[in-house]
Amino acid sequence: MAEQPVRQSALGAARATQGPHAAACLRALPAASRFSFRGSPPEAETAGVAFGVPFSLQSCRAHQTEDRAALWLGPDEWLLLAPEDAARAVQAALIRALGERPYALIGIAHRNTALEISGPRATMVLNAGCPLDLHTSRFPVGMCTRTILGKAEIILWRTASEVFHIDVWRTFAPYVWDFLIEARARL
């Protein structure tokens, strides 16, 4: 009988490690549980309590605790992030809390993968392909949104003044990684 399958990251080993860099560091983030929560504000409020992180009702804002985060992606859509081993617990808690109320909870742990870019020139690297104004006055810490990087769609979330979390569909992740490495080399 075959062995238990092992998760293989979409970024692969070749792209997951990068040494320190004065302008911007890139690293693949560890596997996580991810859900797309869809529903109206009342359901979102209940779900936030069950999840342990309130869902932002303000557009383009994320809330987080130490190991969980809820990112506003649309007026009825939030991306939930939690540790890899918390998937069943999260699912169970939300199902229990919401009962028969209308909502959708979809597991997307494998659809997306995440990487992080940090450093004094991280915004400049991102702006090689992202058309948004990333000045802290326009894109403050805690802001999150779907947007474009080059020819890929990404979710961009500023977790600290010089740190950005990028969530991206798995098949676009190598492109995003290579694009950022290329952009960093051309500063």
Partner: peptide, 12 residues
Amino acid sequence: AERWRHVHGCGR
């Protein structure tokens, strides 16, 4: 008067 979709944003 026209319609747009913020497809690479909020999706609306």
